[in-house]
Design a binder for these strands. Structure first.
Ligand SMILES: [Zn+2]
Ligand SMILES: [Zn+2]
Ligand SMILES: [Zn+2]
Ligand SMILES: [Zn+2]
Lengths: 130, 130
DNA sequence: TACAATTATGCAACATTGTTGCGTTTATAA
DNA sequence: TTATAAACGCAACAATGTTGCATAATTGTA
């Protein structure tokens, strides 16, 4: 069942996430939708897009949940978005680093479903400036 | 300067974190201190213990910050607590997996300071039950 | 096109987590 | 014992995320 509707607000939210270079929080996304819909609606749209695996959640190092498109996510083997994220302590930008192979030798008695890997530090752009 | 005081509340909080097998949130820790101090005091004690590198923060996959003792953290090279964490979707326990070497080949134009690595799934204990 | 079914939304209210200011208390060193 | 800075309690606030319910909008079908 569960017919998926492509509403104006949903298209707008997805477009914003697609276009943006870095991951965004609900607050940032809501600020960009120009009051096309309610704050709560944005939350619910984000939930749906995650469920549809069009975007993925990234918990930033401060605990705020961010969203990025699933362009480079591997959704095989029930292990989702197993790529690296970089959180810059200077510009606060959170970036997906997709071209990066991660080798995790997790003990075999653990059943892995998702990998959350975020590295903090200074991003290349901020390194040039300083 | 900055004299470190070992108050009753601080000792209690550290003891709780030390004894517990898994990482705990401020809410869980506060529930265990038996009203020995205020909720805000727990937050401030946790901040201090992190600064003193006796405990480390782990942001759980839901965004809630958890705390665990720094028994197995490597504090060399300014790269802190570079070990794996496991977040069980069933029992909700967050565990430090210290006996695990992580190999990350992060692009050299990024200046890394901290590594946050959490894997979600089913922990060994919950796998046995089901 | 009209209608029915159900998905999606707005609004208000609430919950949780974490923070700040400020006056008071307490631990520690001299 | 006393001075001093660290630690605390309390109240208020801020940010983020959630829930219930009535209403609106979308989509398939007659
Ligand atoms: Zn930066
Ligand atoms: Zn990503
Ligand atoms: Zn478990
Ligand atoms: Zn740990």
């Amino acid at each position: 069942m569960a017919i998926i509707r492509n509403t104006i607000a949903k298209k707008a939210v997805f477009e914003i996430i697609q276009v943006n270079k870095t991951a965004m929080s609900q607050t940032e996304i809501f600020a960009k939708v120009n009051n096309i819909c309610d704050r709560v609606t944005v939350y619910r749209i984000l939930e749906r897009l995650v469920k549809e695996m069009k975007i993925h959640k990234i918990v930033n190092v401060n605990g705020v949940i961010n969203y990025a498109p699933c362009n480079s996510c591997s959704h095989e083997q029930h292990v989702h978005h197993d790529h690296l994220h970089f959180s810059c302590t200077n510009c606060k930008k959170l970036t997906c680093i997709s071209d990066n192979h991660i080798e995790l030798n997790i003990p075999s008695n653990y059943q892995v479903s998702e990998v959350f890997l975020t590295v903090s530090g200074i991003c290349p752009e901020c390194l040039i400036i300083t």
